[in-house]
Design a binder for these strands. Structure first.
Length: 831
RNA sequence: GCCGGAGUGGCGGAAUUGGCAGACGCGCCGGACUUAAAAUCCGGUGGGGGAAACCUCGUACCGGUUCGAGCCCGGUCUUCGGCACCA
């Protein structure tokens, strides 16, 4: 160890040592308690950004800490390597997607290794390798056989720029999640996963995940969107057709004054055929199809629609009400048709006002300021039933089950549950993804490829035009094959899988990353799963985290895994932001991004200060869930702190050399040092283990360092101070592993600090003979005194009252009450 | 519109169960070392008043509960995030 803190030399040396020794390689060990810590694997864009650094720094502290606590820690890393950017690079620069991806992965691996992360690199995986996607295809086939995968013609979300379909989850604000182009609808035959079969379990199990942030659970609950209601049948007048509507508000049935069908509703064309309404209705439908998602769903839009010339009969009172079509009714939810109650639903109210339809109130709010027969807006809350015959006078909410019962007895309705969650559209018209292992035969229909023929390899003889169909269509070798069923010529599916499938089970593959006989050995997965701590950005709260839960549940049902839920505890880290000046010269803070020019690259920080400093700063600047504002001055501070620790070790060894340790002391200063040391151990342990508050753990260590500097000014008990240094290095090791290895070695300690047991704190060293309490008068601090920590309530009160200073302050006042809290304070209430 | 966070010094943030508000770090001020600077070490640092002991105000705003509120309750404002015509 040199006099100066040469971080580059130190970091390179220890990184090489860890790599060569495979220091973090693990195998299943039934005698040891396992701990699986996982950070969301990156897309190999080529460069690490600060969000990655934050994510992996957090994970690395947890992994190293748990290892020191004696757990058998699985901490793997890999790449979510399929995806659009590789393909775009091919279109733009003519680089092969595979080449582009593998080069990026190599670059990122080098950058990850510069951070000193404790990964078991032997388990590294990339989803774009045939070794991985073979098993992806195998899982697809298992799902297919179980009836969880099906092909269907449907209007789908289409991104005109990416030239591919998107899952509902990938449409954000009506635009493509990736390129922000407004999404349009297109009728296509596509593969789906039946995630809706799991809606109820995905919802229920959220209650069994106390280690997940409420925010994420709420977002998933909203996304699943369970609602209780009823399907109610309305006879269409003059036909044998029944129009079934879904409603959560059966209480308002008597207020129904018209009906609305979605423009895509299959009855519509039939009902208008040959009538005077046909032309305008078809024109309206046409217009809707050409609208993109934004135009269609904009709430500010005025309501539009067309009367279809038909009437439905309200089952509760036999009244005839007109049927309209309007785009505010969605085909994909409920039955694609609604009963409209303008008095008690704002959307219906707006529509009724525009089209001059009746508004009949059936729920009385009991508020004289509301003129029921001249409503200015819909009344949607609780009230008393009116205009509803035998239900009049009831509370409207209480009448709902009664109404459903009444209708049920007459076979007109049944209680129904609906979910907003839709089936997962997984086909993509792209090249760089896992080929869907399905074959179409004229005679046998869709058949899965034989398992022994997997993987269905991605062809390399393709052209990248960036237009229309999957580029795989251009392959001369891929499409034509034989039917696995009858052996006749057949054609392969040319679409690939959504890359979210790849990332829905990678955590299982890590348990047995190079198995070429099966996706993963069950005993290995049973040993490691589930993930004890998962860490990643909150942007995956719905997409990835719900898909992965669905996959794990389906695999559980297939008997392939033993746990239903894949992630026991989840930590969603906040964004890394930085200040910048916008066009108008205003100072703002936002997520680091190239377009705003507020990016700091990890590489430049590691180059200037080292990985330990980068890790320390990023963990110290904010608690992990919160947004972290980058500060160059703050980095400087972390660097200074490490220098301070380094010098303390270096100077101590210069002066006292290496030698024996003492865990007890004799002087008052010794005791004080031991007190600080042990309270620090406790604070740091709790902060990492129970709270994930690395920022306060680090500040506690900083306080210890300050206390040690103070101690060094007096008489130094060298064996005791040496012990304190040993503990200090141990506490710091999960945060800043390189410098700690270096200091550990310099002090002549055995082995590696990273194999040390995490220190235990000694309660007795944390006991003090006296404790300072404060004495308040009327809640204001007036005095401090040292007392025996054991002193009870009454004695404490008397002791405080006996104090001369307090007596003087109470002169001429009436003591009303004395509240004493042992070990903390006394509050005297006086007038 | 609905759902969920957050609001504390000049700044990032502490305060773990209702009990000393501002830990720790940054910045700033002063001192030591130095020919000088950097680096380092030591001290100070919420506002107002005071020579000082000390007094007083202070956790977005208004009100409440309590001996005691940054923390609990009611209301308001600001701000960030998610969802959004889901019947």
């Amino acid at each position: 160890m040199k006099e100066r803190y040469e971080f580059k030399e130190i970091e390179q040396r220890w990184q090489k040592e860890w790599k060569d020794a495979k220091a973090f390689k693990v195998t299943e060990d039934p005698n040891k308690k396992k701990y699986y810590v996982l950070e969301m694997f990156p897309y190999p864009s080529g460069k690490l950004h600060m969000g990655h650094v934050r994510n992996y720094s957090i994970g690395d502290v947890v992994a190293r800490f748990k290892k020191m606590q004696g757990f058998n820690v699985l901490h793997p890393m890999g790449y979510d390597a399929f995806g659009l950017p590789a393909e775009n690079a091919a279109i733009k620069n003519g680089v092969e997607p595979a080449k582009w991806t593998y080069e990026n992965m190599a670059e990122m691996t080098a950058q990850l290794q510069q951070m000193g992360l404790s990964y078991d690199w032997d388990r590294e995986l990339a989803t774009c390798t045939p070794e991985y996607y073979k098993w992806m295809q195998w899982i697809f086939i298992q799902f297919y056989k179980k009836g969880l995968a099906y092909k269907k013609d449907n209007p789908v979300n289409w991104c005109p720029s990416c030239q591919t379909v998107l899952a509902n989850e990938q449409v954000v604000d009506g635009c493509c999640e990736r390129c922000k182009t407004p999404v349009t609808k297109k009728e296509l035959s596509q593969w789906y996963f039946k995630i809706t079969d799991y809606a109820e379990r995905l919802l229920d199990n959220l209650d069994k995940l106390p280690g997940w942030p409420d925010k994420v659970k709420i977002m998933q609950r909203n996304w699943i969107g369970k609602s209780h209601g009823a399907n109610v049948d309305f006879q269409i007048d003059g036909t044998d057709k029944v129009m079934t509507v879904y409603t959560t508000r059966c209480d308002t049935l008597f207020g129904c004054t018209y009906m609305v069908m979605a423009p895509e509703h299959p009855y519509v064309k039939e009902l208008v055929a040959g009538t005077e309404y046909e032309a305008p209705v078809l024109a309206y439908i046409e217009r809707c199809q050409h609208m993109n998602e934004i135009e269609r769903t904009a709430t500010t839009n005025e309501k539009t629609g067309e009367f279809i010339g038909r009437y439905a009969i309200n089952p509760v009172n036999g009244k005839k009400v007109p049927i309209y079509i309007s785009d505010y009714v969605l085909m994909g939810y409920g039955t694609g048709a609604i009963m409209a109650v303008p008095a008690h639903d704002q959307r219906d109210f707006d529509f009724a006002k525009k089209f001059g339809l009746d508004i009949i109130p059936v729920v009385d709010p009991g508020d004289p300021s509301i003129d029921l027969y001249n409503l200015t807006e819909a009344f949607e809350a609780e009230g008393t039933m009116i205009n509803s015959e035998q239900f009049n006078g009831m509370n409207n909410y209480e009448s709902i089950p009664k109404m459903i019962e009444w209708l049920g007895e007459r076979n007109l309705a049944e209680a129904t549950i609906n979910y907003k969650l839709r089936d997962w559209l997984i086909s993509r018209q792209r090249y760089w993804g896992t080929p869907i292992p399905m074959i179409y035969c004229e005679d046998c229909g869709w058949q899965p490829e034989k398992e022994e023929n997997l993987p269905v390899m991605l062809p390399t003889d393709v052209e990248f035009t960036g237009k229309g169909e999957s580029p795989i269509t251009t392959s001369k070798t891929f499409v034509n094959t034989v039917c696995p069923c009858c052996g006749k010529p057949a054609k392969r599916e040319v679409d690939t899988m959504d890359t979210f499938l790849d990332s829905s089970w990678y955590f299982l593959r890590y348990c047995d990353a190079h198995n070429d006989k099966e996706a993963f050995a069950k005993d290995k997965v049973d040993y490691w799963m589930n993930v004890d701590q998962y860490i990643g950005g909150v942007e995956h709260a719905i997409l990835h985290l719900m898909y992965a839960r669905f996959f794990n549940m389906a695999l559980y049902d297939l008997g392939l895994v033993d746990t239903e839920e894949p992630f026991q505890n989840l930590l969603t880290q906040g964004m890394v932001t930085k200040g910048y000046t916008d066009d108008k010269g205003e100072y703002k803070v936002a997520k680091m991004s190239k377009s705003l020019g507020n990016v700091v690259s990890p590489h430049e920080i590691i180059d200037k200060y080292g990985a330990d400093t980068a890790r320390m700063f990023i963990l110290f600047a904010a608690p992990p869930e919160r947004e972290l504002e980058w500060s160059d001055a703050g980095v400087e501070g972390s660097y200074r702190f490490l220098g301070r620790v380094y010098r303390m070790v270096y100077n101590f060894v210069e002066e006292f050399g290496n030698g024996e340790l003492a865990t007890t002391g004799s002087s008052k200063a010794d005791e004080e040092l031991l007190f600080t040391l042990h309270t620090t151990i406790k604070r740091v342990t709790d902060d990492i283990d129970k709270r994930f508050n690395f920022n306060t753990a680090i500040s506690a260590i900083m306080e210890l360092v300050n206390a040690m500097y103070k101690y060094k000014d007096g008489e130094v008990n060298a064996p005791l101070f040496r012990y304190a240094l040993k503990m200090l290095i141990t506490l710091l090791a999960p945060f800043v592993p390189h410098i700690c290895s270096e200091m550990w070695e310099h002090m002549g300690f055995e082995g590696s600090v990273h194999d040390e047991a995490w220190p235990a704190y000694d309660e007795s060293a944390m006991q003090r003979s006296t404790v300072e309490i404060v004495v308040q008068i009327n809640g204001k601090v007036k005095a401090r005194m040292d007392v025996d920590p054991e002193m009870d309530r009454d004695a404490l009160g008397e002791f405080a009252m006996a104090d001369e200073q307090i007596k003087a302050l109470l002169e001429g006042k009436n003591v009303m009450k004395v509240i004493a809290v042992p070990g903390k304070l006394v509050n005297i209430v006086a007038k």
